[in-house]
Deep mutational scan, measured.
Amino acid sequence: KKKYVIKVYFEDTGKEVEIEAESKEEALEAAKRLAEELGLKIKKVEIYP
């Protein structure tokens, strides 16, 4: 089964997080949740198959 690796870059902090997920949708949801939890804004998202 294919996994996606999503790199999320946050504004202000210069922080980046990698998330593995089964689908792009799932990964983007996780990225949004994470940003909310951390109180950060997402600057850029890169998706690698």
Rank of each mutant, 00 (worst) to 15 (best):
K44T: 08
Y9L: 11
I19C: 05
A30W: 13
R33A: 03
V45P: 00
P49A: 02
A35F: 06
K2W: 02
E20Q: 15
V5P: 01
A35W: 08
R33I: 09
Y9E: 13
K32I: 11
K32M: 15
K24W: 14
A31Q: 01
K3P: 12
Y4M: 11
K44R: 04
V8K: 00
K1A: 04
E25F: 08
A35P: 01
E25K: 06
K15E: 10
Y9H: 11
G39A: 12
K2C: 12
E22V: 08
E37N: 07
E18K: 03
A35C: 02
K41N: 14
K2T: 13
V45C: 03
A21K: 10
A30G: 13
T13M: 09
T13Y: 14
I19V: 07
F10D: 01
E46L: 06
S23I: 03
A35Y: 02
K1C: 10
T13G: 15
E26I: 04
E20A: 10
K3N: 08
V5C: 02
K1N: 15
K3M: 11
E29S: 09
I19P: 00
E16K: 06
V45D: 00
E20W: 09
K7M: 11
E36R: 11
K7V: 07
K3F: 06
Y9A: 04
K1D: 15
K15T: 12
V45A: 03
L40G: 02
K32A: 12
A27E: 00
K2Y: 02
K2V: 12
A27N: 00
V8W: 02
L38G: 04
K2F: 03
G14I: 15
L34I: 07
E26C: 03
Y4N: 06
A27H: 01
D12Q: 09
V5L: 05
E20L: 10
E29T: 15
E22H: 13
A30I: 14
V17I: 13
Y48S: 07
L40V: 11
A30E: 13
K32S: 11
T13D: 04
K24A: 14
A21M: 06
E26W: 07
Y9R: 05
V17R: 08
A27S: 04
V17L: 12
E11L: 10
K15Y: 13
Y4V: 15
K41M: 12
E37T: 05
I47S: 12
A35Q: 03
Y48W: 12
P49K: 02
D12N: 10
E46K: 05
E26Y: 09
G14M: 09
K43D: 14
Y4K: 03
E25C: 07
V45E: 01
G14N: 11
L28H: 12
L40M: 09
V8I: 13
K41W: 01
E25D: 14
G14P: 07
A30C: 03
Y48D: 06
K44Y: 12
E29R: 11
E22F: 08
L34V: 15
E46H: 13
L34H: 07
E36Q: 13
V8T: 01
A21F: 08
I6M: 10
Y4I: 15
Y4H: 13
L38F: 07
E36V: 13
L38M: 13
Y9C: 02
L38D: 01
G39Y: 02
E36H: 13
F10P: 00
E37L: 05
A35V: 09
T13P: 11
E46D: 13
L38C: 04
Y4D: 01
Y48Q: 10
K7F: 06
